[in-house]
Amino acid sequence: MSPSSRYQVDAAQSRIDPSVTTVLTQTVARLLLVPIFMVALAILVKGYADVGDGFSAGVVAALGVLLQDVAFGYRAIGRLTIVRLAPYGALAGALIALGVTFVPVLTGEPLLRHRPGAGEPVAHLGALELITPVLFDIGVFLVVFGFAVGVIGMIARMHPRPIGPSRGTGATGGDEG
């Protein structure tokens, strides 16, 4: 018996009991998702004016998604598309931030030279200032969100399928996809 298969039996016996999730919590969780994303957006956008930045926004948004896990159980969130794609989002975010960092080098300027520069006028879109640091912050947001959601998603997909007739894809990490 290989270590991992032995483990599966143990883990299956100890999984979180699905009966704790109720219809009420599920509904609340769904309903909360939108406001949480709004808050995250606000934190991100207002970062330059007030407390908060891409990082905290990312964590807030991730917590919103993860609230679903309290409601639906680990296995359910492992199947959400947003969760599955989150790691790629993280990498894309890193690429965006990296772009902001290094694109100025191509034009012969020092790296991380933001536009518009110091003292130059800034276009506004409501509270949002259209400056490259915001783009950078969006990159940070994506990385953090993608990381948090992605990792929880990975853990979720490690959970073995429930005992009894199974449905869905529940993979246990040991096999190739």
């Binding site: 970062g47 330059y48 004016a49 007030d50 930045d53 110091a118 800034v122 200032e129 400056i131 640091p133």
Partner: peptide, 10 residues
């Protein structure tokens, strides 16, 4: 100068 009010963020 860097168009921000939150010094830490900037």
């Amino acid at each position: 100068d860097a168009h921000a009010r939150d010094v830490v963020t900037v």
